[in-house]
Design a protein around this nucleic acid. Structure first.
Lengths: 155, 155
DNA sequence: GGATGGCTATACAGAGTGCCCAGTGATTTC
DNA sequence: GAAATCACTGGGCACTCTGTATAGCCATCC
């Protein structure tokens, strides 16, 4: 059910150089093409690999500012708040959480000034009681998955 | 410098069906292959598209629990804390932020019980003064970029 | 012993890629 | 106004990869 070392190396390889294709990957892994093919098919079937969509950099699109907003929601307003936030392009992801806030969302904006507009857009909605925002200054560890893949392959 | 409607449609297309390739994409967009090729090359050169790495689902790897931890760091310990967190596979990303906490990180774990282990691992480090964790219950808006791409194409 | 599952090795047709060129229309430059 | 520049079109060519199928080998499980 889990993944083994070969799966992990395959994923690493594809993460490093996505363009190489199955054939080249099999060569580098020292296995037959059919094997690499089968492994990849299995990983996709299991849902471990969701897809190979393009990774788009918001900064390069003109949105270099990232922030996280913790939202407190009025009782029973969850559904409408979700719909509202889903309609804001600058909301890149939204989670409902335990803890003080009720929701956590990732925002981007064109500038620090523009962030104010985005926050007003997000918060200016009936159902949101309170919001606290943390602006991202640095990103020492960008979103990554390889270390976890390697960890998962060990057991 | 920015992107136009054709760029946006190309990105959407590749996000929907990454396997189609340049030729099929050009057919669907109603442009010549060379055009689609050139647009794609430009988007990659500009850094808008970083790559086409595999999207790995932590849940399918056996890590279905996600949490966000806000960390408060002792003055001057930033660098060592970063190094420490970078070494923990369950830390998927790390940001330094303004606001109350000093850092925000995304964690995954095998279970709620296992999350305790991960948090201890993260927090049990000289330099971290305080930590507050929010466990993700639902993910109404999974990480997405297409709406922002469409927005960016408008201006 | 027989069945099953994973891997190797090979083959073939179809399709896509990288790369080239010539021509066209629109916009900018002199 | 004329020339140059730029993006796009449409075509062609050699090469490679993909999808799919084959058969044989080996270890494991009943």
């Amino acid at each position: 059910m889990g993944i083994d070392g070969l799966d992990a190396r395959l994923i690493e390889l594809l993460a490093d150089e996505p363009r190489i294709g199955v054939l080249e990957a099999s060569r580098r892994l020292g296995v037959a093409r059919g094997t690499a093919q089968a492994r990849l098919d299995r990983l996709r079937a299991q849902g471990v690999i969701r897809g190979f969509g393009p990774e788009v950099d918001p900064a390069a699109l003109g949105y270099p500012v990232t922030a996280f907003a913790t939202l407190e929601i009025k009782q029973g307003q969850g559904a409408s708040v979700r719909t509202h936030l889903a309609g804001v392009p600058e909301v890149l992801e939204l989670h409902t959480t335990t803890g003080h806030g009720d929701m956590l969302c990732r925002l981007v904006a064109r500038s620090n000034a523009d962030l104010q507009r985005v926050i007003d857009l997000v918060v200016g909605f009936e159902g949101i009681v309170r919001a606290s925002t943390a602006i991202v200054m640095e990103n020492p560890v960008p979103l990554r998955i390889i270390p976890l893949v390697q960890q998962a392959a060990l057991d």
